[in-house]
Simulated scan of single mutants.
Amino acid sequence: MTWALLAMAGIGLLVNHFQWLHLSLQLVGALYLIWIGTKMIGGAAKPLLMEEPTAMSWQAAMCRAYLISMTNPKSIVFFCSIFGLVMPAHAPIWFYGVVAALCFLLSALWHCSLAFCFSNQGVANYFLRFKCRIERVMGAALVILGGLLLWVR
């Protein structure tokens, strides 16, 4: 959520003043999607390292997750890429508020769903069995999406 807000604020301010930057961000965002998709396809066959779960309070888990997110440079690149691609150059301020709220809601739902699902050993084993195929399909989807975004620009 923090990176999303920072990316929206900075990108919103800059793209309103520099139209060429808006186009550049869209192109870089599309190239990033292609790059991350090819990395997923290439790394799909690598085994997933599993760690034993550690007991911690929900507050400690939230703090740890936040720190991991804030120190992960892929987070800011991801949000800058996405917002560079989809945010209109002259969006009203309320639009940014709606996007921020949706980012928070979707992120919370996604991460809680992942934690809930993958805490089930059956689901985790099922994913591991099909990990290679799933990651290749998702990687291909990102490459196609990035290519389509380049094509329409």
Rank of each mutant, 00 (worst) to 15 (best):
V86T: 05
H90A: 02
C80R: 04
A44Q: 02
I82P: 07
L85E: 07
S81T: 02
A89C: 08
F104V: 08
M62K: 13
M87K: 10
I36L: 13
E135P: 03
A89R: 15
H90S: 03
C63V: 12
C103S: 14
L102N: 08
F95P: 00
G42I: 03
C132Y: 03
G139T: 04
G37A: 08
L102Y: 09
M87F: 09
A91K: 13
G42S: 14
I41H: 09
L31M: 08
S69R: 12
V98K: 06
G42M: 08
S69T: 13
S75G: 11
H90C: 02
I134L: 01
A60F: 06
I82E: 07
Y32G: 07
L49E: 12
S75W: 14
A61I: 00
N72R: 03
E52Q: 02
A141Y: 01
H90W: 12
G84I: 00
L109I: 04
L106R: 02
I76P: 06
I36D: 04
S119T: 06
G29K: 03
G97P: 04
Y96R: 03
V98M: 10
C132N: 14
A91W: 15
L109N: 06
M87Y: 10
E135K: 06
L105E: 09
A140C: 10
I68A: 13
T38C: 15
L109K: 00
G42A: 15
W58H: 10
G97D: 02
L114Q: 03
K46P: 09
S75E: 15
K131T: 03
I134R: 01
L31H: 04
W110T: 05
T54D: 10
N72L: 04
F83Y: 09
S75P: 05
S69D: 15
R64G: 08
L106P: 07
S113M: 12
V98E: 14
H111W: 15
F130L: 07
M62S: 14
A108P: 01
Y96D: 08
W58D: 05
I82Q: 04
G97I: 02
C132R: 14
M50V: 13
L114E: 06
